[in-house]
Design a binder for these strands. Sequence first.
DNA 1: TTGAAAGCGCTAACAA
DNA 2: TTGTTAGCGCTTTCAA
Lengths: 334, 334
Amino acid sequence: MAVGQNNITIADVADALNISKTTVSRAISGKGRIGNETRKRVMDYIEEHNYVPNPMAKGLAQSRTYNICWIIPADSAASELPFFQRCMMGVADVAGVHNYDILLSMVYENDITQLERIISNKKVDGAILGRTLINDPSVKYLKESGLPFVVVGSTEMDGVTQIDNDHMRACKELTSILVMKGVKKIALIGGSMNHVVNRTRRDGFLLGLKEQGVKPDEKLIYLNCDEAGSTERAVEDALRAGVDCIVCMDDGICSNALAKLKKDEIDIPSRVKLASFYNSMILENNQPAITTLSYDPKELGSASCKMLFDMIEGQEVANRMLLGYEVLLKNSTM
Amino acid sequence: MAVGQNNITIADVADALNISKTTVSRAISGKGRIGNETRKRVMDYIEEHNYVPNPMAKGLAQSRTYNICWIIPADSAASELPFFQRCMMGVADVAGVHNYDILLSMVYENDITQLERIISNKKVDGAILGRTLINDPSVKYLKESGLPFVVVGSTEMDGVTQIDNDHMRACKELTSILVMKGVKKIALIGGSMNHVVNRTRRDGFLLGLKEQGVKPDEKLIYLNCDEAGSTERAVEDALRAGVDCIVCMDDGICSNALAKLKKDEIDIPSRVKLASFYNSMILENNQPAITTLSYDPKELGSASCKMLFDMIEGQEVANRMLLGYEVLLKNSTM
DNA sequence: TTGAAAGCGCTAACAA
DNA sequence: TTGTTAGCGCTTTCAA
């Protein structure tokens, strides 16, 4: 049977059963009083004739869309990372349970018109922002809109419900462990300070050093290395300065560093140890495997979606939620 | 101003201007005759009071949702690949131009309930399937539903509008080039025969050999290598058989093969040449860089979306469309 | 426990 | 060129 031609409505059901539309509606929604027998008759009928409610009509009447918006960066650098896909899986799982679907919105750093259209068109009941920037225009817009939303990652703006892995503590712990294992001079190579998470990672790194009583050397902290070139220069510089360990803020930077070290035939870990604050298959499959922090993006997605539904249903939710992490010690720091 | 509270409707506009709702509707949609002056008055008013039409009401009246469905596999092996994200970007670009949004559907090989819900709930006007399997249940369901849809990739089912890169020709060409460059004994390592594209690639490979008058050796064609383990065994076996070139069907398999070769300290290209039928950053950044075929997933996405809109608007579209490719010859086959 | 009727915001015949 | 009217399919007061 062609599902697309399924045109049976609540009125048809009412007619067939000689009852009113209201009663049918009540039987389906479960709201309001209704006789047990009547309900059963309705349920049986719609089951047999596989009636499917029309969400547009329902939405129009209730001012609800049964959609949530999943917002991700549109720049291709981000789409290389499997993080967003995995996170989205978690979102989708939870949304499905609530009978909600996911509407996609791609935003550029300076162009959120697509998001604006979706929100002002009232096409969603809530939103999840997959990544935040410093002074994020999407966050600002969402706040103004009054729509319930949660942010994956962290933002400096207050009054925003956010959820993240505990990067600070994770980076502190890994840094601390490296020092305990005997590393003397350690460099950090990181990405754009425009991303909140990168700032957090840097802070965690500094805390780790502090915890171990090591004074950080500002010259060995290379930030805003967004291209392979700047990472290569950072690696060169760090080696010249005599470091015995390089920590990279994410797998992208780490794989660039790795390429550079290979090219220069610098052995890991005998000549320099290498670790990353974010893992991926590339690092795992490398010879030697790279020590790294590991997170579960899918869990992040599902947790954020749960929070969003709490908000949509008008419940109070925590302002901030932190999820766990794992430290994976591999041969690159042995 | 809180956008979420924007509640001005077509009736408000009509009242304020002392005209009928119909006239307002006509001014906005551009359909039907309307006086130039009246139109201008309406446009000015809605501009100033930033009226935004309610898509649910519009949808209900027109039986349109202004959403299309983007369907991707839910298994995590697929989400590792940036292909779907990039392809989605192309879809999103085109959809945006048409004032459409993208509703996401994740399907498992044997569970398309989420897709079924979206379709039977009439939440979309059309669908794009990001990947097809042999005997794909999603394709079957979409065909039955009567909804306009296009498939990225290829399917053996007929009557389905499909769009793909010309994998067959691309693989034929690369294989042919390798033989012309002097390769004598060549192995092919490929993924699941459950994916149409893998079958196509194998066929292209065989055609390439044929074109060069080389008789294929069945024993050197390793299929269904979905895990690192099976690829490693294939590599071992191929080397034992004395091949001088290994071709991998995709970048995942290729990076597994690469890891194995490195572990066993087998030099590329002096001991064995290596090529891939699908590229990625991993292969590009490798030392040496890997010879590969290159496609533009974003173009695929936007082309498929254009076709879909043609279908939605009731135009005739080609049954099958093939896009181009590039052969990137790198050091791994020098 | 059930029903009648009014609406959600917009479109689309049909008339004027 | 414009307006009247009747829906689209469902929810929700208010009465019965």
